[in-house]
Design a protein around this nucleic acid. Structure first.
Lengths: 351, 351
DNA sequence: ACTAAGAATTTGATCGATCAAACTTCAGTC
DNA sequence: GACTGAAGTTTGATCGATCAAATTCTTAGT
């Protein structure tokens, strides 16, 4: 097979210069209609496709977004990031962007990888997930003026409004509040909560949502909630305690793992019909038929790209300066309701 | 900040020529020790990092592997590919390779995407997943001599031994056989099977494994197996029928979805202790505590890279010719045993 | 018809690396 | 001491695109 055609070849066929071909591709507006059509015909005829590396070398842009794939596959809820990754890739594609993966063992290693990808002009911007308190990656990226957006707000940090840190997050508090209110609206007054130990931003946030709803209904929260480390067996344990006192008629949980645990506990106590709501709407919740609060991951991806590329553009905006307006998006999750009653019940569940 | 350093800068500091710097980076063996050390010192001093795009433009290699992210997130078992993706990225990294994602709506669109990534010199090779009978992507890649490896064998096709098609797959038949034998070894003689309708390569293969084991034990297979479309409720339905006749004491299933369905059916019939084995070892199986046949995904990733890069190299081997030795890898899965008895039982399950 | 301003297009230089070929160094041989 | 061949190093050209500046073509105004 012959060499792949280049701008030069297209130019020759269309009887114009290299640059005009380039213009047709990059700023069609400045080319006269007749000329543009001729060039486009030549491009089609030769099946020309721009050579990405050459363009990148010259423009110093890669049209690529880097994202790290988490090393630990925390089985049950890892699917959230995977779904997000999918949405991001799909939407990036429609903005002419690509997504490059990388892995890292720890934040320092990750910074090293980021540096390499940046210096090699492989990646224009980064999307960070699982941000932590005082995240060193955020500090490094800000410092070095590398464009980035985090999926996850800067927890417990005054930097929440630092314009240099653009972020997108899901309003877990509102989600849990909605879920709790949904149960209250069904006439259930004793709605319990199984959450995580305080200290994690997301966990505290979700817990607040439950408190919000209970308080708004002028009910008491005392004795109705517990905190445990995330996990199925932990959820079973915690739920069993809450249910033992017979003071709770429904449960809202900080995760699907806990919700599944709760479901097991309820079943073992004969309370097969106890309403339970989990968080993240993982495949497990779907399979078992547990209601769950679903993060709007496609919308998160849209928002991430909007912060990175602007509302319509298709190249990465420069890192933001300290004196600009803060920009972030807090998105509302939605409750996916399922008749999560008897596990042994014969129900039609999609795969 | 000043410009990033280039080979030129390094050369000046080390008092050598551009090319020598390049040699130190790419074929250190041919550079005299003393010189190499001097260059390495200069590289470290200037914190030089090669500009990937420039290198790619010249060498026409991208050191990047393309893989498509499935559009449909078939919740319960989508995690298999995600886990594979992670392993692939991690191992690719240690071979100096990167993984670029893309999406596509259908095979033709995928071919279009592949072509663009290839022509743009963005990607050197592709990894295909979910291959189907007479896959058009395989045909196109072969035709155009684009290096690729599929995760999944060329089902029902004489091409199984076409050397131009390199593939890696998991021996589902052996896995199911092992699982079945495991149950037989426990003294259970009536081991049933819930599989998929014949016609899908993987499904037929797994079914054969069950037949193998039963036959080897000189038992009869009649009346002990059913076929249904994958899904939890379908699994419940199918298992209920098999269990109703009271002719089965354990079940092996073609997927975790079916296994979960079977577990629900068993529970509803009071057979909480019925041994059930699923396939894929998804988070669902882990969460519920169902035994499952686990695909060795890290090993699959290793094998894929081996077929693509050779045993130790770190650049993509050319597409294979029709007259070479066929090369593929068929890997054995392993059975992950869990005490999958009573769902309501209080057990310590990891997250 | 003549000119100036703007639009459209072309030309030469460049991005940062590697290739291919030329050149230099040096040990070993007769 | 000149000669050979291999090892080590340097030089000039090149990959395919875009940038910046120069040039040519249009259009409108006087």
């Amino acid at each position: 097979m012959a060499q792949l055609p280049t701008v030069e070849d297209v130019a020759r066929v269309a009887q114009v210069s290299r640059q005009t071909v380039s213009n047709v591709l990059n700023s069609p507006a400045i080319v006269k209609d007749a000329t543009r059509e001729r060039v486009e015909a030549a491009i089609a005829q030769l099946r020309y496709r721009p050579h990405a590396s050459a363009r990148r070398l010259r423009t110093r842009k890669s049209s690529t977004i880097g994202i790290r794939l988490e090393p630990e596959r925390n089985g049950i809820s890892g699917s959230v990031l995977d779904t997000f990754l999918h949405a991001l890739t799909e939407q990036a594609d429609s903005r002419q962007m690509r997504v490059l993966l990388f892995t890292a063992n720890d934040p320092l290693h990750e910074i090293d990888q980021i540096r390499r990808l940046r210096d090699g002009a492989d990646v224009d911007a980064f999307v960070l997930t699982s941000t932590s308190y005082e995240d060193p990656r955020v500090a490094w990226l800000t410092q070095n003026e590398v464009p980035f957006v985090t999926f996850g707000r800067p927890w417990g940090h005054d930097g929440m409004s630092d314009p240099r840190h653009r972020w997108v997050d899901v309003d877990g508090r509102a989600g849990v509040r909605e879920a709790t209110e949904n149960l209250l609206a069904q006439g259930i007054t004793r709605v319990g909560y199984v959450g995580w130990p305080s200290g994690s931003g997301a966990g505290d946030d979700r817990h607040k949502g439950w408190v919000d709803a209970i308080s708004a209904a002028r009910l008491s929260t005392t004795g109705l909630s517990t905190s445990v480390v995330d996990g199925v067996s932990q959820g079973t344990e915690a739920a069993r305690e809450l249910l033992a006192g017979n003071t709770v008629d429904a449960l809202v949980c900080a995760s699907d793992s806990l919700a599944l645990g709760a479901r097991i506990a309820a079943a073992s106590l004969g309370k097969d019909a106890l309403p339970i709501i989990g968080f993240d709407d993982t495949p497990v919740a779907l399979a078992i038929g547990i209601s769950s609060i679903q993060q709007p991951l496609a919308a998160v991806a849209t928002a991430v790209l909007e912060l990175l590329l602007g509302p319509t553009g298709n190249e990465v905006l420069p890192a933001r300066a300290a004196n600009e307006e803060p920009s972030y998006r807090l998105l509302a999750p939605r409750l996916v309701e399922r008749r999560s009653s008897n596990l042994a019940l014969d129900r039609t569940i999609g795969t």
